[in-house]
């Protein structure tokens, strides 16, 4: 149940009731020190805070939450009376504001919008706009908790480092953006709402889909990537079918053209309980996939030990 925290100048039982009716958990300490203590030790999912309470303190609290606690995506709604609209918005890391005499339907709408926006932005990767690690972990753990028969695919580029050395980071970023588009489109096409794509970081991506769709999706990602990749290579390398760059030891080597490797971990009959188990298995499979030249996928078909 999402927790919403109210930090207001005066008691507003009507608001509390309103949110509780919506199925939200409400916390509202009216004594400031306790309130702040609570917020900082157990951050809520959304914070409504009144500016008039103490302009300086409100500011400090926001900075603490958003920067020190690494909660840049915690939605904060500021209650602001009409005389205070001249705030320095550059300085205030809030997401929305409304006046104290807001009508209940609008208040609810703003809260839901803030939740939706936070879910959308969460920890999205700045390069690709895809959800990042926090969302990935949350999504997968949630599916595991429900015991759903899903497959988790770990996607990465082969020889991405030498590619970056040869073509520069800008071109590397272009390829990552293209791969992100391909993943999103393919997973969307075959899994619809049942699919998920995340960007772990660098050239590491992950997708989640219903188990029966996994191999079809992996194969299509590979086909589409191989189809698009020539657009990002120079003619001479295309003709040679390889490029020259340096390996990790600084030796000049020939590298094959960029390809993708996909390691698929199936969660059959609720075999896994924690995200950590999945990523450990993925690491093992990846070792095998990486040894196969060109774009490939590998699905873990090993039986559970018990």
């Amino acid at each position: 149940m999402p927790k919403i925290c109210l930090l207001l100048k005066e008691k507003r039982p009507a608001w509390v009731e309103l949110f509780e009716k919506e199925g939200l958990e409400v916390c509202c300490d009216y004594r400031l020190p306790e309130a702040i203590d609570n917020i900082l030790s157990q951050p809520p999912d959304l914070l409504i805070i009144e500016y008039e309470l103490s302009p300086e303190l409100v500011y400090d609290l926001l900075i603490a939450l958003k920067t020190t606690l690494y909660l840049p995506f915690l939605p904060v709604l500021l209650v602001l009376s009409a005389t205070e609209f001249q705030l320095d918005w550059e300085r205030y890391p809030v997401d929305d504001f409304f006046s104290p005499d807001i009508l209940p339907p609008e208040l609810l709408a703003r809260v839901h919008l803030a939740f939706a926006r936070a879910r959308r932005l969460a920890d999205n990767n700045p390069l690709t706009g895809l959800p990042g690690n926090t969302s990935i972990l949350k999504y997968i753990q949630d599916k595991l908790d429900k015991g759903e028969e899903i497959a988790i695919g770990y996607v990465d580029l082969d020889n991405f480092k030498p590619f970056n050395d040869r073509y520069g980071f800008a071109r590397g970023d272009e390829i990552l953006r293209a791969l992100a588009r391909i993943l999103t489109n393919v997973v969307r096409t075959y899994a619809g709402d049942q699919g998920f794509v995340g960007h772990i970081g660098g050239d590491d991506f992950v997708f989640v889909c219903p188990l029966p769709k996994a191999e079809k999706i992996a194969q299509e990602i590979i086909d589409h990537f191989d189809q698009v990749v020539p657009n990002f290579l120079d003619e001479e390398d295309l003709l040679k079918g390889c490029f020259i760059s340096e390996d990790r030891q600084g030796r000049t080597c020939r590298f094959p053209l960029p390809s993708v490797s996909i390691a698929i971990v199936p969660n059959r009959q609720g075999r896994y309980k924690h995200y950590g188990e999945i990523s450990a298995v993925a690491a093992q499979i990846k070792k095998y996939v990486k040894q196969i030249p060109g774009s490939t996928y590998l699905l873990d078909r090993r039986k559970a030990k018990n």
């Binding site: 272009e174 391909i182 489109n185």
Partner: peptide, 14 residues
Amino acid sequence: RISTVSSAIVLLGF
């Protein structure tokens, strides 16, 4: 970068 319809469709999505 993109010069063919087939690549464009793959990247833009349905």
